[in-house]
């Protein structure tokens, strides 16, 4: 993971297609362990495989920034926690993401934030997996945007669950994670239940 992960706009000619930012709840992302590279090239994009069956190179999420911490001396970076109705996202931004890092530094916790970034899977020395999001952008937003995101993310998650049997990534997810759709439907149900009608 030595490659600095700049937004990929430099490659904008020809057949370049920007990777969509997936909507995924914290509780689903927490279960994500499988990661892979598509293509042979060193610069080919890397993906994580979501348990509901979609490859994911980028995420967009809106939640509450609850804690942030500055780390490192020479190579300073920020880690922060962003909470949604199902759990916690771990986000970070370093000197290769200067704008996102400055934004995290500036925004006071707690606040609603919108985050675009790339998920990365790490293995800890004791064998556990951790997933953290390297931020491309972080903005302070209002509750309306957070609630809109919960609807958006619920819809996207339900769509993925419904298509699981019919897509290659869905089949792969069932094989790798033994995904129980009922668990994720309940997760969506619980998330929606926390919104005011």
């Amino acid at each position: 993971m030595a490659m600095p992960d700049r937004p990929s706009f430099a490659r904008r000619e020809g057949t370049f297609e920007r990777e969509p930012a997936r909507r995924v709840f914290a509780a689903e992302l927490r279960e994500t362990r499988i990661h892979f590279r598509e293509g042979e090239d060193e610069k080919s994009p890397t993906y994580v495989l979501l348990p509901t069956g979609e490859r994911c190179n980028r995420v967009f999420l809106v939640g509450t920034l609850t804690e942030k911490k500055k780390q490192g001396e020479q190579n300073m970076f920020y880690r922060a926690r962003v909470v949604d109705p199902t759990g916690t996202f771990f986000i970070m931004a370093g000197s290769y993401q200067p704008e996102a890092m400055q934004q995290i530094a500036r925004i006071e916790a707690p606040s609603f934030v919108a985050v675009t970034g790339k998920p990365n899977v790490y293995e800890t020395p004791d064998g556990a997996t951790l997933i953290s999001i390297r931020c491309e952008s972080v903005t302070a937003v209002d509750k309306d945007t957070r609630d809109r995101w919960v609807l958006d993310c619920s819809l996207a998650t339900l769509d993925r669950i419904d298509r699981m049997g019919a897509t290659p990534y869905g089949e792969r997810a069932q094989k790798e994670y033994h995904t129980d759709p009922a668990v994720f439907r309940k997760m969506v149900f619980d998330a929606l239940s926390q919104l005011r009608m």
Binding site: A182, R185, K186, F189
Partner: peptide, 10 residues
């Protein structure tokens, strides 16, 4: 509508 879709199976 979303609650119905999510809750459909339990």
């Amino acid at each position: 509508g979303l609650l119905n879709r999510a809750g459909g199976s339990f």
